[in-house]
């Protein structure tokens, strides 16, 4: 009987935790009794709500306003967390955004913003966190990728490139950190019912669902369960994997 995930009391850092998948991850870990801190960029009201909901449920959650594109700010936030909690056990790199458009219509800013957040942000936060994990010879890193990282999707060159990079980053870092017993994995969601995918879901709902074997969109909680699994002790022997949580999504 599997009952103890081993996550109670673990120090967990989640980026982009105020909404969507990030929030579901934060709440799932907090419910396990983990000591969760999340970063958010600009939605203070949403972040406050997550913290307040945690407090109401007797699960303290901490939040810090940090733009993951800012390497210095990331390093400082990670140091504060390590100082306060003495260690960092789990990192969930979730912060990400989309700026979908045909390549010919993509502005320089659409490309830069997506790559700097989705890829640069992962570098910024992970670089700061791994030092603490290396020192303790323990840690679990879970990167939120996307189905777009492996399958083509119209209007998603920037986003797809960023998520393909995350899959490659995950595998390379898994090799690098294996000697220190740190695992690195990714979760690749399909179309999940969050603010980020509203345009996709509302724009061509039936068309998109027709390509999903399970014929429905996923929920943020369903992605969070996969993250929970990879962070739990049940996944101690898994590293360098990209776990697809997409209902069997098939793109053209």
């Amino acid at each position: 009987m599997l009952t103890d995930s081993g996550l109670a009391g673990k120090v967990v850092l989640v980026t982009g935790g105020s909404r969507g998948i990030g929030r579901a991850v934060v709440e799932t870990f907090a419910a396990e009794g983990a000591d969760v801190t999340f970063l958010f960029r600009d939605n203070k009201a949403a972040a406050d709500e997550v913290v307040a909901a945690g407090r109401a449920a007797g699960r303290p959650i901490a939040a810090e306003q940090v733009d993951v594109r800012d390497a210095q700010a990331c390093a400082e936030a990670v140091e504060r967390l390590a100082e306060r909690c003495g260690r960092i056990d789990v990192l969930v790199n979730n912060a990400g955004l989309i700026r979908d458009s045909l390549l010919g219509h993509l502005g320089e800013d659409d490309v830069r913003m997506v790559l700097e957040t989705n890829v640069g942000g992962v570098f910024n936060v992970t670089r700061a966190v791994v030092m603490h994990m290396i020192a303790r010879r323990a840690g679990k890193i879970i990167n939120i990728s996307s189905v777009a990282g492996e399958r083509g999707g119209q209007g998603q060159t920037n986003y797809a490139a960023s998520k393909g990079a995350i899959n490659a980053f995950t595998r390379a870092l898994a090799v690098e950190l294996a000697p220190r017993r740190i695992t690195v994995n990714a979760v690749a969601p399909g179309v999940i019912d969050t603010d980020m995918t509203r345009a996709i879901r509302e724009g061509a709902s039936d068309e998109v669902k027709a390509r999903i074997l399970l014929r429905r969109f996923g929920t943020a909680a369903e992605v969070a369960y996969a993250v929970w699994f990879l962070a739990s002790r049940y996944a101690d022997y898994i590293t360098g994997e990209v776990l697809h949580v997409d209902g069997g999504f098939k793109m053209e």
Partner: peptide
């Protein structure tokens, strides 16, 4: 020593 060991103890020394 491997390169990750250098990274490890330099961080330890700094702290």
């Amino acid at each position: 020593a491997e390169s990750i060991d250098f990274l490890d103890f330099v961080f330890g020394l700094e702290r």
